Simulated assay, not measured.
Amino acid sequence: MTPHTLQGRSEAEVTWFQRRDTLKAAAAWVAMGGMPVAMAQQRSNVVELVGDVLLNGQRLRPQQTIQTGDEILTGPASRLVFVIGNAAFHVRQNSRLSVERGTTLNAVSLLRLLTGAVVSVFGRGANRAIVTPTLTAGIRGTGVYTEVMPNQRSYFCNCYGTVDMAAQADRALSVSSYHQSFWGEVEPKDGRFLTPAGAINHTDEELEFLARLIGQRTAWQIAGKLGVKDGKGYMDDKPGQMHPAMVLPVR
């Protein structure tokens, strides 16, 4: 497995994809045709459910379908993997998020994360966004990791793809081939609300796992090589490269 850095998370939380039951569930999902066939056969879009998860305040059952407009709450030692349209999600323990509707019932327009963490892979499509208490990320088709810390400071990693980042008045365009990470600050840090971060609390393999559920590959799988996992977002470390949050004006 690729090297990774943990901050306030356990090893088990980022190696969930290695469990035998998880691998079997993912293989079955792909073998049965994924989301298009699940919709046609009116099957559940839940790939895996572990522990106690509430859907709109009621305990989620494996055979249920998660739709846009739903609210999800995961308990301790619980997690959820599901697919909506051409987007796949892994919701970690102690998380609360809502999935808001796009142009159709099976199109996600907005993922609002209030607590906890979620790993997401989005296929190309209409503009979508992830919103936390301190930042907004406009998604254009990408793989990302989002976490809200206990103090409401938000962490966001554009693992690959293009994302429009915003925190208060700060704006940045994130174009990443290998993990470009940001903090959405509660209070300004050196005059900025959007600041650079390192790559923490998620792995390449998690993104690869979710991408496979929707028939995609990550940027590094396509390139056939890994980048420098320093949070700057580049496949190759070259002189003069700067994190986009470093070029924001100091207010």
Rank of each mutant, 00 (worst) to 15 (best):
M1E: 13
M1V: 13
T2R: 12
T2A: 12
R9Q: 08
R9L: 11
R9A: 04
S10C: 09
E11H: 11
E11D: 15
A12F: 07
E13D: 07
V14A: 05
F17G: 00
Q18N: 06
R20S: 15
L23V: 15
L23Y: 12
K24A: 14
K24D: 15
A26K: 09
A26C: 14
A26Y: 08
A26G: 13
A26M: 14
W29T: 09
V30M: 10
A31T: 14
G34F: 01
M35I: 11
V37T: 11
A38V: 00
M39L: 15
A40N: 10
R43W: 11
R43E: 08
S44P: 14
V47K: 01
E48F: 09
L54F: 10
L55S: 09
L55G: 07
Q58E: 06
L60N: 07
Q64Y: 04
Q64A: 06
T68C: 06
D70G: 10
T74R: 00
G75S: 12
A77F: 05
S78G: 04
V81A: 02
V81R: 00
F82D: 00
I84V: 15
G85L: 07
G85K: 03
A87H: 00
A88N: 08
R92G: 05
Q93P: 03
Q93A: 13
R96N: 08
L97C: 06
V99P: 01
T103Q: 15
T103N: 14
N106G: 13
S109D: 09
S109T: 05
L110K: 08
L110G: 03
L111T: 08
T115V: 12
A117L: 07
A117N: 03
V118M: 11
V119F: 10
R124F: 12
G125V: 12
R128E: 02
I130A: 07
T134I: 02
L135E: 01
L135P: 05
T136Y: 03
G138Y: 08
G141Q: 03
T142N: 04
G143P: 06
V144A: 13
Y145G: 00
T146A: 13
E147V: 01
M149I: 02
R153Q: 13
Y155Q: 02
F156H: 08
N158D: 04
Y160P: 01
G161E: 04
T162Q: 13
D164I: 05
D164Y: 05
A166Q: 14
A166V: 05
A166N: 06
A167T: 02
Q168M: 13
A169N: 14
R171Y: 04
R171H: 12
Y178R: 02
H179R: 09
F182A: 13
W183H: 03
E185D: 12
V186P: 04
P188W: 07
P188S: 15
K189Q: 12
A199C: 08
I200M: 06
H202W: 10
D204W: 01
E205W: 03
E205P: 07
R212S: 10
R212C: 07
L213G: 00
G215D: 03
A219E: 04
L226K: 01
G227M: 01
G227Y: 09
K229D: 01
K229W: 00
Y234H: 10
M235E: 04
D236P: 11
D236C: 11
D236R: 10
D236A: 14
D236S: 11
D237A: 14
G240R: 09
G240Y: 09
A245S: 04
M246H: 13
V247E: 09
P249M: 05
V250R: 15
